[in-house]
């Protein structure tokens, strides 16, 4: 019995070890998959001597779970707007000090200071932004797509990819049905569920995926896909027949922003890193690599004519006007999750 308790003590001690063994001068950055030109990280280390430990997630819900359950300790995270709203509400973020971030202060576009989840960027610095829309392949689609209704059109059998992301997929369906993007009513969500289940039963859906979709669209695997604008742009670069459109019913506009969790012990270095990302040459490299809309003035001004006319990288005011931000509906997510499981199972 004594031996067993000794073993238990050792086991507990071992569990505690990794927390103590963190090197000074290292930043842990927790970002989306495929969301940075990784050579930028080496340059940051070369310039400042601060090492970067780079880890990635696929959906922002996954990031939120890892962050709040102590699955890892991060110095910089890149949540989306409605998650930032929640993190601010829960007092989990370190306030930003723009005196220490001259590039961010000077280079961020004016409309990047006014988003309603964090007016004035007190706790977050926009990293990339974009919209949700339909990417379609003109080789398979003869009409010009302007409405979400094409996603439910039976002539596109096994030809539509949906996003395996709860807020996006349910959000655009809500928009299609004429509801608010942040709808809180079981009646509306029930209609969304019925429509999405019918879409599946009619054999229109080829799959629910996230990261794999862009490569599949490049390879001509389907006629259309619900997609984030940057992924769409990535696919368009590799396949000329692809076109991105933000449907007329409206959609979601979003901002992914850099934040520093309260648990970070390296806030100074983290702000250095954020400021580094806002430097025009670094922002340009990241834009060239991932193709989401950049919040940095010089990058937007430097767009060539073709890019400037493309709604995937440079949505017009008119497009933005019909799009909304997601808001945090944490207390209502149980209902969303319930309907989501019914759709997906």
């Amino acid at each position: 019995m004594k031996k067993l308790s000794l073993v238990l003590v050792i086991a507990l001690a071992l569990c505690a070890l990794p927390i103590a063994a963190r090197a000074e001068g290292t930043l842990t950055v927790y970002n989306w998959y495929d969301y940075i030109d990784e050579s930028v990280l080496d340059d940051f280390t070369a310039e400042t001597g601060i090492k970067v430990d780079y880890v990635m997630f696929t959906t922002v819900e996954e990031m939120y779970v890892k962050m709040t359950t102590g699955g890892g300790k991060y110095d910089i995270i890149v949540p989306s707007d409605y998650i930032i709203e929640r993190l601010i509400k829960d007092d989990m973020l370190t306030p930003m000090d723009f005196e220490k971030m001259p590039n961010a202060k000077a280079n961020l576009l004016d409309n990047m200071w006014t988003a309603d989840y964090d007016v004035g960027n007190l706790y977050s610095v926009p990293y990339m932004w974009g919209t949700v829309g339909i990417l379609y392949n003109t080789e398979y689609v003869d009409e010009e797509i302007t409405s979400w209704s094409s996603l439910f059109d039976p002539q596109y059998k096994r030809d539509v990819f949906m996003l395996d992301s709860i807020r996006d997929t349910m959000g655009v369906t809500l928009k299609f049905l004429g509801y608010n993007l942040n709808e809180r009513s079981e009646e509306a969500l029930g209609k969304v569920r019925d429509l999405l289940i019918k879409q599946k039963q009619d054999g229109i859906v080829q799959g629910y995926l996230v990261d794999e979709v862009k490569d599949k669209m490049v390879g001509g695997e389907a006629a259309m896909a619900v997609m984030w604008s940057g992924d769409a742009m990535y696919a368009i670069e590799d396949n000329d027949s692809l076109v991105y459109v933000v449907p007329e019913e409206g959609s979601n506009v979003w901002i992914d922003a850099l934040c520093i969790p309260k648990t970070s012990e390296n806030a100074e270095a983290a702000m250095k890193f954020i400021d580094f990302l806002c430097r025009e040459d670094i922002a340009q490299r990241n834009y060239d690599y991932i193709h989401y809309c950049s919040p940095i003035r010089q990058v937007v001004e430097g767009l060539d004519e073709e890019e400037a006319a493309n709604p995937a990288v440079n949505p017009s005011q008119e497009i933005i006007a019909r799009c909304d931000f997601f808001h945090d509906i944490m207390d209502y997510m149980d209902v969303y999750n319930k309907y989501w499981m019914e759709i997906r199972s």
Binding site: E61, V205, M333, W340, M341, S345
Partner: peptide
């Protein structure tokens, strides 16, 4: 089931993963 089923067929493993990673209902 996710890669070859293109996310069309949730199996028990997917549901459990979903509860942990998305629904945050441990």
């Amino acid at each position: 089931s996710k890669l070859l089923g293109s996310g069309n067929f949730m199996l028990m493993g997917d549901v459990i993963e979903n509860q942990y990673m998305v629904a945050n209902d441990w």
